Simulated assay, not measured.
Amino acid sequence: MARIAIDMDGVMADSTQQYINWYAARYGVQVEKASLLGKPETTGFPLEGVVRQFLYTPGFFRTKPVIPGSQEVIKALQEKHDVFIVSAAMEFPQSLSEKLAWLEDHFPFISWHNIVFCGYKNIVDADYMIDDHIKNLSTFKGEPLLFTAPHNVHVEGYKRVNTWEEVGALLL
C-alpha cells in the first residue's frame, strides 16, 4: 500500500477553467485555453494582472470545476492506498474554508483525517505526489508525478500524467 499525496488546484479542481470562466463573466471576453499553453499561471489574459486578483475574491476557490475523472480515480485509489489531499491554503485568506467546503461537496468520501492544508509542501512524506507545480515536486523525496496544466506544458524532467485515467493506469 502506497501513500499518495494529491494536490487540489490544477489537479482535482480546474483552476485554468475557473480563470477563464471568471474572466469571461467579468470582462465579457472568452479566452481559449489553448492560448494559455506555456504561459505562467494567471497570465495570458488581455488585461494582465486582473486574474491574480481572483485568488483574493470570495467564492473563487469554492466554485472551481472538478477535473474529469478525478472523483472516480481518487475513490478507487483510496481502496488500495493511503491517499492524502495536500493543498497550499495559507497564502489566500478565504481559500482554506472554501477548499474544505469544495472537498466536502465534490469528494465527500475523503475524510478530514486525509486532508492536509499547508504552506510549503516540502514537509510532505509520501511515496507519490501528484501536483501541477514543479516548485512542490522539486523538493519531494518520493516519486513526483507532474499533472499536466497549461502553465507546465513545456516542463521536462518529471514523469507526467495528463489525465486521471493515466493516474489510474499507473497507480491502480
Results as ranks from 00 to 15, higher is better:
104 E>F: 03
144 P>E: 07
142 G>I: 00
116 V>H: 13
155 V>L: 07
118 C>S: 12
148 T>L: 15
124 V>L: 12
156 E>Y: 00
113 H>D: 15
95 S>V: 08
101 A>L: 14
73 V>N: 13
119 G>L: 12
75 K>A: 14
101 A>K: 13
137 L>P: 02
102 W>Y: 09
112 W>I: 10
84 F>H: 09
150 P>M: 14
78 Q>I: 07
136 N>H: 15
138 S>T: 03
147 F>P: 01
88 A>K: 01
102 W>L: 09
103 L>E: 04
91 E>C: 06
91 E>Y: 12
140 F>L: 01
136 N>P: 02
67 I>M: 13
87 S>W: 11
73 V>I: 14
95 S>L: 11
126 A>I: 05
83 V>G: 08
79 E>Q: 15
158 Y>R: 01
113 H>A: 13
154 H>D: 10
89 A>D: 03
123 I>W: 10
130 I>M: 07
130 I>A: 06
140 F>K: 00
73 V>K: 09
140 F>Y: 06
135 K>H: 06
155 V>E: 14
67 I>A: 12
79 E>V: 10
77 L>C: 10
85 I>H: 05
128 Y>F: 15
135 K>M: 06
68 P>Y: 06
159 K>Q: 15
113 H>M: 12
152 N>H: 14
67 I>V: 14
100 L>P: 03
96 L>V: 01
138 S>L: 01
155 V>N: 00
141 K>Y: 04
91 E>V: 13
129 M>H: 03
145 L>M: 10
93 P>W: 12
76 A>F: 06
75 K>L: 06
116 V>W: 13
72 E>W: 03
86 V>W: 04
105 D>Q: 12
96 L>C: 01
116 V>M: 12
72 E>N: 04
110 I>G: 14
126 A>H: 10
141 K>H: 14
140 F>G: 04
76 A>T: 11
94 Q>E: 07
154 H>C: 00
109 F>H: 09
81 H>F: 07
123 I>C: 09
118 C>V: 12
161 V>D: 09
123 I>S: 10
126 A>C: 07
99 K>L: 03
